[in-house]
Amino acid sequence: MSGLEDLYREIILDHYRNPRNQGELETPPAVMAEGFNPLCGDEVTVHIHVEDGVIVDMKFGGHGCSISLASASMMTTVTTGKSLSEAKDIIYSFKQMMSIHEGRLEEGSEETDSPMAGLGDLQALQGVVKFPVRIKCATLGWNTLEQCFEELASQ
């Protein structure tokens, strides 16, 4: 099956079948951003509600493949309840993981000093790196969350 199990890990399929935090929040007080993947026409929306610098609630919606939906779903579970700066650190680490070359992945990337340290369940998405066209799917929700932060900063 040529590495399919690396892409579709059980936890990813679980988030795909049972997405967490799907929906919308009222704006305001929440802010919303829309992300597009021009390659496949997928679109995702992310709503976040921030109070005192902490993300107290987050919802996502839209249409996408299993990877983009699962990644967005996992993103909401990992970043809700975090401060904006903590969430930005997680986004940074996640994007680092997505940019790791496949070769390095196989050398043993489970070390504690790797960028994936602290990503928890999100590490299940590291197999996406072996399928370069799918990286944009995995990062769609995350880029949209960053747009929410920009929206917040511009208010």
């Binding site: 040529s2 399919l4 892409l7 996408g64 493949c65 299993s66 990877i67 799918r134 799917c137």
Partner: peptide, 13 residues
């Protein structure tokens, strides 16, 4: 309701 990207990924395998 399988997304076309996912279909083509499995077909590719």
């Amino acid at each position: 309701d399988v997304h076309p990207h996912d279909v083509s990924q499995i077909l590719d395998s």
